[in-house]
């Protein structure tokens, strides 16, 4: 039930944002998010609310650390 999906912010109107993933768009509320997202940011969406902004740089950094640690070439 705690399933939450990263979706890209494509429009912001006060406390409501339009978000999109794979061609699906939805409106989500921003009442709960702790850092205001910008257009193009990914937010984690749960039950119609954005609950966190996803840090893409952090995601890339994690992958890079694994690749380096495992001696794999960059993908």
């Amino acid at each position: 039930m705690c399933l939450a999906v990263p979706m890209e912010v494509i429009a912001i109107n006060d406390k409501i944002a339009d978000v999109e993933i794979g061609g699906v768009t939805r409106q989500v509320r921003l009442d709960l998010i702790d850092a205001a997202p910008a257009l193009g940011d990914f937010v984690i969406v749960h039950a119609g609310f954005a609950i966190r902004r996803m840090d893409r740089d952090d995601a890339m950094e994690t992958i890079k650390l694994f690749q380096e640690g495992l001696g794999l070439e960059l993908i």
Partner: peptide, 30 residues
């Protein structure tokens, strides 16, 4: 979304709409 239940309530003024609040800390703030 629980928000959708508000629309159900607005559309049915003669009845009480009860949303079942089940879920952990992810869901409770919503």
């Amino acid at each position: 979304s629980p928000i959708d239940a508000l629309a159900v309530a607005a559309a049915n003024p003669g009845r009480t709409v009860v949303f079942l609040g089940v879920g952990f800390e992810t869901t409770a703030p919503a």
